[in-house]
Design a protein around this nucleic acid. Sequence first.
DNA 1: CTACCTCGGTTCAGTCATTGAACCCTGGCT
DNA 2: AGCCAGGGTTCAATGACTGAACCGAGGTAG
Lengths: 170, 170
Amino acid sequence: MALGKDYTGQDCSLSRGLELLGERWTLLVVQNALYGVRRFNDFQVRLDIPKAVLSDRLARLTEGGVLEKRQYQPSPPRFEYLLTDAGVELWPVIYSLSAWSHRNIGGEPPRLFRHASCGSGLLPSSDCPECGSIPPGEVEMYPGPGPKRTDPVSRAMNRPRRLLEPVVPA
Amino acid sequence: MALGKDYTGQDCSLSRGLELLGERWTLLVVQNALYGVRRFNDFQVRLDIPKAVLSDRLARLTEGGVLEKRQYQPSPPRFEYLLTDAGVELWPVIYSLSAWSHRNIGGEPPRLFRHASCGSGLLPSSDCPECGSIPPGEVEMYPGPGPKRTDPVSRAMNRPRRLLEPVVPA
DNA sequence: CTACCTCGGTTCAGTCATTGAACCCTGGCT
DNA sequence: AGCCAGGGTTCAATGACTGAACCGAGGTAG
């Protein structure tokens, strides 16, 4: 990750994971991909991230097998970044870290999550208390009490929706 | 986190969590604290981290309520850093990210984990497949097939042991 | 009493990453 | 012909990380 140096000498899987995912912005990009963001411009608008950094992060995540870059129309050529299966498997990591942060740092969450088919809120592990482990496609996201961004991408995301459902700004 | 700028403008808990935990080395420090490392020097030896950075990370984690600094002997004055309850709650986050990295990036793990009382390996969520959610104190860590560091702290850690049990280098 | 050792740091110059603004190119649209 | 959108690249300034050197309090061996 940062500073050209990797975590050489470290012997654990975590350090290898952090080389790919541990840089600034990277996990927020993955989070937004889970929320349905797919296009360069939409990531940029929603995250307020410098374009050069976004470009780098999308490229690394693509190399690393977390995202896949696809052309979604031939002309003008336009691209989107989709989560791979490996990328989707990051949902429990991202949710559990969000949940930890909410419990231990505070702040009102702008978005809440529930199991779409039974309506239960999720456990910190991202499991459903009634049904156990559930895939992200069955998780419904809906507005919570916290403050929300007002850019078009965030507004499109604030309507109740499943994870992974593509965001289409107005 | 990095660059004096925080993730201002972001509206999610995750960004607040990453301000505290998302810097280089921070999560590895917490991981090693879960593995039983407590002293400045032991972190430094095991992680090969610049002392200035370690000093900064321990201070931030202490401010942030993840660690607690304690003097464990009066003379000469010596200190240790213990995980708070909030810090211990990071175990599922760290384990699930490690497990993801192992599945999706590869490499042999130097350490494996099982539920001490029933002997089952852990699910990716860090739950026991037989007993469900278990506290870190009931997780036993034992050597896996992967390469291991040979510094004294790592060697002390490579004996089978519970999470959180203090590491005592030879 | 002196020299040396450990622990737990701090200081500092050099290197590398991030930022934000400016620019660029392709291909529509008017 | 001129303008716009999407998806980037370039570049100077700023800030973080690195590694080596240094430091001070308190033991301890000679």
